[in-house]
Amino acid sequence: MAEPLIEARSLVKRFDSFVAVDGIDIDVQPGEAFGFLGPNGAGKTSTMRMIGCVSPVSAGSLTIFGLDPRLDGRDIRSRIGVVPQMDQLDAELTVEENLIIYARYFDIKKGEARRRTSDLLDFVQLTEKAGDKVDHLSGGQKRRVSIARSLISEPELLLLDEPTTGLDPQARHVLWDRLYRLKERGATLVLTTHFMDEAEQLCDRLVVMDRGKIVAEGSPRSLISQYSTREVLEMRFGRDRNKEHLDEVEAVGERVEVLPDRLLVYAADGEGVLATLRERNVVPDSALVRRSSLEDVFLRLTGRSLAD
């Protein structure tokens, strides 16, 4: 196995008395798409900022490309690309100028910067917007410019902090498509997300974070099989009546979660469970059987839903 690109041991980030990251271990291999999954405030962004060398490590060890951010921050930063959570594009410049000047920050020659800019605008499908001011772009287009900009230095590692938060579904799919292509080309991606579908789509391997700690680790599929069942039956009985049939439901499902608006029953065969319940005169207002997702993994691990 190759030497890991990122290696963290007992990594801690403290802000005064608040512990944002509480002793995590991570290894990210070259060519991997690695995800941090967790709700807001789980410590994902703090971890990303430490990896990006814009936030000092409070305790523990962290190496990127085998280098120490404390001593070689500049060298590390010159080899990574960053897509921040909020777009930090240069509003005073055009799309094209944004990319060119960003290349200059990496000391890339002007001619080369121009060549890469036109290639990357082509890649993110924004060639016709090259001369537009960034302000005039939509949210999804801005995010694509951010991604193009992060790639201008041909980084060995790409950090994406919540790449699709705040985008509409169509824009998200366009973005996923571009990221998937990057992945196919062998780029190493590290991303944070609180969207289960995003993690399932893009990540080879992920860690689930909650309150600064890693609570589970693995591929999306293995996490689901380890912490959930194949299917989930969602039932609604109407307000305040979800708990009335709890005993009967618990008797047939492997595990039951009571949420304010619905009951989740974990089982290998959701339809079978629903049929059995109907036979026993437990008839919900509505019922839905779906495949288990990372959302269920998170609920199982933390007792909370991710949307909180």
Partner: peptide, 10 residues
């Protein structure tokens, strides 16, 4: 937020 994005570069 110009300086935030500058500090992410070398």
């Amino acid at each position: 937020r110009l300086y935030d994005s500058l500090l992410a570069t070398p």
